[in-house]
Amino acid sequence: MKSEPFRTRAMRPLVAAVICAFALPLGGPPAASGYQLVGGATFRWPPQLDAVPYWVANRDDNWMTVEDVVTETRAAMNTWDQIAQADLTLSYQGLTNQRPFDFFDRTNTVGFSTREHLRELGLSEATLSVTSWLNFVGTGHIAESDILVNPAFNWTDTPERGGWDYRSLMVHEVGHFLGLGHSNVGRDAGDGLLAGSAIMWPYSFGSMSSLGRTLTDDDIAGISVLYPGPARETGAISGIVRRDGVGVSHAHVTAFEPHAGHTVGAWADAAGRFELGGLVPGRYVVRANPIPETHPAGAYFFSHAVVDRDFQVTILPRFVVVRRDEATEVEIEVLP
């Protein structure tokens, strides 16, 4: 059996890289965003595109045949494609001899590359995979995107027998491929990420786990913000997180609807304002928390921003009612 270069299960980072073609309007999530979006609500595939095409790199891995890679990649793409709340179509185009991260090739390539290629790109060997984008300067829409998978890990389509689940990884990366950033709806129990954590949490569920194959409400809310579908019957919670009357920069806010078991997170902007979109109507417990101490701010898409962690986890001591097509305004005062 091939030895793993890295043995720790937890905290294996999933990286998304942005390659700027001309200029990239990244400034963290805009005030009105729900989920963390890489570059705001326009950083998505153009709405006039009927289907987003993708190809799979024609390269076997030491652990998976290219046929397995195609099957698992398509399954991961379909996981997002089938969300009723989102207006989104992903279309498999076949195999390609292009490598992932060969930019400006007009091919959205997904799959393995070589370890040498990773080194050329300056990526750490601890990285499981990376997603890149090119985007149109004028509109912000995504023009091209690739997903590169690190071949140094023992990937598998049957994680229960050991190894890292390729499909779980791919579901996460496809979230980036579509324009989503990272979520903070997750909890690391020390020996792995708890079930119920968002797929877009910045670290993997670990090897021998297929938990990352299933989208959570948080992920679905995020994609429905970017690609709103006709079946979307949702409301929102908007407001501000304050400490001593001053907005808390990039606080994380979650809303939990106990009846449906629906949990959705959002990030505040630099002024502490947030909007949790894509919420099914109901009654929510609202919670504000800082980024965990163990997470570098760089694990999230707060480029050049100061992330305020100096506050306690705070719960609004009342339910917040969300109605369809309405935004309920709240203020959360946190303690240092």
Partner: peptide
């Protein structure tokens, strides 16, 4: 009465119940 037991915030009783 609504009662929240949070992993980080501890026990929280709602000021306003349903």
């Amino acid at each position: 009465d609504i009662r929240i037991e949070d992993e980080d915030a501890g026990l929280v009783l709602f000021d306003e119940g349903l």
